[in-house]
């Protein structure tokens, strides 16, 4: 899934914050691992903006 350009840019800036080591390698690996997932999550969140009362539920809590 191709993320929206705005989200890709934001994630690229975020992944530029490396811990240590080769700063060109880590963002690429982390993007490969997480970028599409983060884009999917934030893309879905945009649709959820009309549902501000969405409750956070941890599955398996006694709310189920």
């Amino acid at each position: 899934m191709e993320p929206p350009e705005q989200v890709r840019q934001w994630i690229g800036e975020l992944l530029g914050m490396t811990l240590e080591g080769d700063s060109t390698r880590k963002p690429l690996e982390a993007w490969t691992m997480l970028g599409p997932a983060l884009a999917a999550v934030h893309g879905a969140t945009v649709a959820m903006e009309t549902e501000p009362a969405t409750v956070l539920v941890i599955p398996g809590s006694n709310d189920q």
């Binding site: 975020l14 914050m17 982390a30 999550v41 934030h42 969140t45 549902e51 969405t54 956070l56």
Partner: peptide, 16 residues
């Protein structure tokens, strides 16, 4: 590297 806000949004999407 995941910000807390992204983790929480992910849990919200998961809940939906």
């Amino acid at each position: 590297l995941i910000p807390a806000a992204s983790y929480l949004r992910a849990q919200q999407v998961r809940s939906e």
